[in-house]
Amino acid sequence: MDQKLKEIVFKNSDSIVHMWMEEIETLKEENYTSSVSDELFESTNREFVNVIFTSIKNQSTSLTLEEFSEKLINLGWPLSYITDGLQVFRRVTIDFILSQEEQVDSKYISNVLQSVDSWTEPIIRKLVNEYSGSWEHIVSLQRIALQELSAPLIPVMDNITIMPLIGTIDTERAKLIMENLLEGVMNHNSEVVLIDITGVPVVDTMVAHHIIQAAEAVRLIGSTCILVGIRPEIAQTIVNLGIDLGKFPTKSSLRKGFSAALEITDRKIVNLDTKDEGIVDMLDSLGEE
């Protein structure tokens, strides 16, 4: 940036900041930050303009470009806040510099535009790149967390596990379901796996195909798969689509499926009647011991 123009900007930084803050305030009323408190909006704006000014001075600041972009992401503010804010700053700075001269020619205007651009454009690129990089990193971490939660396999009893599925099942998630299912069956030594689709809103041909593949894979490693949560509308859809689910058991509810799993593993639910003399005698004998 031209040294003379630098001096004008730094000498009148308070005036430029004031003009910039006024224009930024109108952006708040229009769109993305309308729900932000006035105190937070003002403090963030001042941090923003401080980052801009210190960048041209090549001075260290308590809040770097990287930290500022990460802060905006944590606040949930869009990238447009950065781009709009810098464009406003560019326009305000140019207008102020030109207003300081009584007579300006095209050469002077060109020099001002080029000088201000050489200052603001690197900041725009840096902030946008840092914002995008931080955002991609956060999204990547969130994707991993969602994948870990999207197909959990829960051991509820010896040799019996349940996989509750919630939400839409696409090809990528179906692959994850298959991997978790087979790995979990081996790790938990499961004889029976209950796949609960109560929370799956739509079961179409693709979803049914993925479920059938998962059940067949479980069968091949020596376990039984029971599909539970077959609601009436899903049953009707399956019939209309001509999908054959006859290769493995299906139940309308998790409770019925669990009862079937107990039977497969040679167990059953027994209602204990404490009035039965035999049980009372057994409890008494245990108490004496």
Results as ranks from 00 to 15, higher is better:
1 M>N: 09
3 Q>E: 13
9 V>G: 10
10 F>N: 07
11 K>D: 09
18 H>R: 05
23 E>K: 12
27 L>D: 03
29 E>M: 07
30 E>P: 06
32 Y>E: 15
32 Y>M: 07
33 T>H: 04
36 V>Y: 06
38 D>R: 03
42 E>R: 04
47 E>Q: 13
53 F>W: 15
53 F>L: 15
53 F>I: 10
56 I>D: 11
62 S>L: 10
67 E>M: 09
73 I>H: 07
75 L>F: 10
78 P>M: 04
84 D>R: 06
88 V>G: 00
94 I>W: 05
95 D>C: 02
98 L>W: 09
100 Q>N: 11
113 L>W: 08
116 V>T: 07
121 E>G: 02
122 P>Y: 02
122 P>S: 03
126 K>M: 03
126 K>S: 11
126 K>H: 05
133 G>K: 10
137 H>E: 07
137 H>D: 08
139 V>A: 14
152 P>R: 01
158 D>K: 13
166 I>V: 15
168 T>L: 10
178 M>V: 05
183 E>K: 09
184 G>H: 08
185 V>I: 14
187 N>Q: 14
188 H>T: 13
193 V>T: 07
195 I>N: 06
197 I>P: 05
198 T>C: 11
212 I>T: 12
216 E>L: 01
216 E>D: 05
220 L>N: 00
224 T>F: 06
225 C>V: 04
227 L>Q: 01
229 G>E: 05
231 R>A: 04
232 P>E: 10
235 A>R: 01
236 Q>H: 02
237 T>E: 04
238 I>V: 14
242 G>W: 10
247 K>T: 00
248 F>K: 04
248 F>H: 01
257 G>R: 01
268 K>M: 12
269 I>A: 14
284 D>M: 15
285 S>N: 15
